[in-house]
């Protein structure tokens, strides 16, 4: 259900610092809202994010209910070699979504 959008440069020179952007569509229900009948709406959020570059973890994040819906992240890494950059989100109940992008490093 969660749709993912990534921004990874397709090419980079070795040693370049590149910006990676990732967005996942998710409501991030904070657990503090009430429905139309006043009933509490249970918390339903993504709590962990991890980015790996050729299998090596390069960035991790953990989210609380204070992160906006459709969590967006932008961070940096050093382009080292041609490979796959994988982005992985983990829900509070353990469900996992992931997507990846290829980068060519010259």
């Amino acid at each position: 259900m969660a749709s993912i959008r990534l921004s990874v440069p397709s090419k980079a020179a070795s040693g370049d610092v590149i910006e990676l952007k990732a967005l996942i569509q998710y409501p991030m229900e904070s657990g503090y809202r009430r429905g139309s009948r006043g009933e509490a709406i249970a918390r339903d959020i993504i709590t962990k994010f991890e980015c790996t570059y050729d299998g090596e973890v390069i960035f991790k994040a953990s989210f609380g209910p204070g992160v906006a819906a459709n969590p967006f992240l932008s961070f940096h890494t050093v382009a080292t070699k041609t490979g796959t950059i994988t982005f992985k989100w983990t829900h509070q109940h353990g469900e996992v979504w992931s997507d990846s992008a290829e980068i060519i490093v010259t």
């Binding site: 610092v17 590149i18 570059y53 090596e56 390069i58 960035f59 994040a61 992160v67 906006a68 969590p71 967006f72 992240l73 932008s74 961070f75 940096h76 890494t77 050093v78 080292t80």
Partner: peptide, 9 residues
């Protein structure tokens, strides 16, 4: 490996 300590959310 981050190269730059810059994060946005």
């Amino acid at each position: 490996r981050s190269g730059k300590a810059e994060v946005s959310t």
